[in-house]
């Protein structure tokens, strides 16, 4: 089935099987391998992208469902003038160790800060409950998200 998705500002079309997950469409058809896949159970959030501006687990969405949508992946976040403030905050707060969860964590955090006002540390922890990090203990991730939300 032909799908057409605006990915990071560019319309990308491909002929996909209906069972193709958006995560596989991004990685295998478009070569955007920044979106990681970390689990088989919609639990880890490593594959989080923005669909029409809001976080979504791209492993729990068929590419055909995203037909006509506007998708932003980690590759599309930085602007001409450098890193997105959330990426910069992750860098400055050392909010990553192995980095595997980071693309999904950053995309979820961008959506979270946009969606909820006046976030505090508890709100960030709750808001990122769908994104698992097995290295950091989350401390610096929370710091980074709070820094970027100011």
């Amino acid at each position: 089935m032909e799908v057409s998705v605006t990915v990071n500002g560019t319309v990308r079309s491909a002929d996909v099987e209906p069972r193709t997950l958006l995560a596989h469409f991004l990685r295998d058809d478009l070569g955007l391998t920044g979106t990681n896949i970390g689990c088989d159970t919609s639990s880890c959030g490593a594959c989080t992208v923005l669909v029409d501006g809001r976080s979504a687990k791209s492993c729990t969405l068929l590419a055909v469902q995203a037909d006509g949508s506007d998708v932003t992946t980690i590759e599309g976040l930085a602007g001409d003038d450098g890193l997105h403030p959330m990426q910069q905050a992750f860098h400055e707060c050392h909010a990553l160790q192995c980095g595997y969860c980071t693309p999904g964590m950053v995309m979820a955090a961008v959506s979270l800060v946009d969606e909820y006002e006046d976030l505090d540390a508890a709100g960030v922890r709750e808001g990122l409950e769908g994104n698992l990090c097995r290295c950091t203990g989350y401390q610096n991730i929370v710091k980074a998200v709070l820094a970027a939300s100011e």
């Binding site: 919609s42 809001r54 729990t60 979820a108 959506s111 808001g127």
Partner: peptide, 9 residues
């Protein structure tokens, strides 16, 4: 319910 990404969809 779930987490924010789940709640969006």
């Amino acid at each position: 319910v779930g987490d924010p990404a789940v709640r969006h969809r």
